[in-house]
Computed example of a mutant assay.
Amino acid sequence: MRKLVIRWLLTAVPLLLGVSALTFVLASLVPGDAARSILGLNADPAQYRQLRQQLGLDKPLWQRYLHWLWRAMHGDLGQSIQSSGSVTSELGGRLGVTLSLVIGAVLLAAVVGVGLGLTSALRGGVLGKVVDVLSLLGLAVPTYWLGLVLVTFLAVRSEIFPATGYVPFADSPTQWFESLVLPVITLAFSSAAPIAKQTRDGVLAELGKDYVAVLRARGISERRIILKHVLRNAGTPVLSVVGLVAVGLFGGAVLVETVFVLPGLGGEVVSATGAHDIPVIQGVAVFFTALVVIVNLLVELGYAALNPKVRA
């Protein structure tokens, strides 16, 4: 287990450096700059040059990146050009919203996907076709369209859940849950299908192996065979799909947060992109990369828990 954590750390450092450098370069290639966004198109040229100098935009790109990297290594991601506040503080306040959304979507997709896949593998027939249809629907239905449909029927017409906004858990656990129901369903819909398909295929493959017939011949109950042996052996590829789904949901969260007006990292990066707020864009990229690395670590730890060979 210790080797897995060490390998994770060795992977995380160059990945964070690479993503931060690439983000810095790509953000600098976007037409315009922060000084122009602040002053407007008709600003005085002298004032424009002075503001560029104050913001450090007149320095070479590599020098600006090294300056940012040095501060980031000390826990300082810089100051937002829009608000002049600390990027670390601003993003830290929004991280809980995004994590609540993504974790809820992953759990919902995993529970529904594994349940559908297991039922399809054990019952077969029509349920197997249903899983295939859901897989196609999950890929075909646009996330923003599904979100608008849910808002129309469950928020506007029925008034069961709020259409937009977010209530912190500390203020009201009930309202916090209600504010996340529609966004979580929207984000999880397309992710449950591949998990269900992988679960079904994995369970069917395990049920056809010799050790299952041996266990049945020894009189072991079917339920114990499924829960203790089949699911455990089929769980590794399912866990891989769950990990990929979790990573993909961080990107999907940007769109869902915009649709439901959630104050998360996704909404912040959209606003920062329009204002050429490179420190915020850079900070969001670092946050998302760190979260992806943590997800990969959790997946590897899950491998080790399911398969003793990984621990060896």
Rank of each mutant, 00 (worst) to 15 (best):
L101N: 01
T152K: 15
G274P: 08
L148V: 00
G251I: 10
P279G: 13
I195L: 04
G85Y: 11
N296C: 12
G251C: 11
A155G: 14
S190D: 10
L61M: 12
S179C: 09
V247Q: 12
V181P: 01
L150N: 01
A35Y: 00
A12Y: 02
S221F: 00
Q82C: 05
K228A: 15
V247C: 08
A312H: 12
G243T: 06
A192C: 04
K129G: 15
L244W: 06
L108S: 06
S158K: 02
I220W: 08
L127F: 13
L265S: 05
F189D: 04
H229Q: 01
K228L: 15
P45Y: 11
D33S: 09
L255S: 00
E206Y: 09
W68E: 08
W68V: 07
I225Y: 06
F260I: 09
W70H: 09
D201E: 13
V212H: 08
A253T: 05
G96S: 12
F250C: 05
V214Y: 12
L116T: 03
V130E: 07
V102P: 07
I81S: 02
S89R: 14
D277F: 09
E300S: 10
N296V: 13
L16R: 01
F189Q: 10
G248E: 09
L95T: 13
A305K: 01
L15F: 04
L137Q: 00
L265T: 05
R2C: 02
D132M: 02
V25N: 00
S158P: 01
G78F: 10
L231P: 00
V181G: 04
L22E: 03
R7D: 12
Q82L: 13
M1W: 04
L26H: 10
L215K: 01
G266E: 11
K197H: 07
L154R: 02
L77K: 06
P31A: 03
V130I: 15
G202W: 00
A234F: 00
A234S: 08
K59Q: 15
M1A: 12
S84G: 07
L91V: 10
V280E: 10
M1H: 12
A46D: 13
G235Q: 00
A217K: 11
V256L: 08
E178T: 06
V111Y: 03
V295C: 14
K3D: 14
P279L: 09
Y211P: 11
G251W: 09
G125M: 03
I195S: 01
A109I: 02
E90Y: 05
R157Q: 15
N42W: 06
G264F: 09
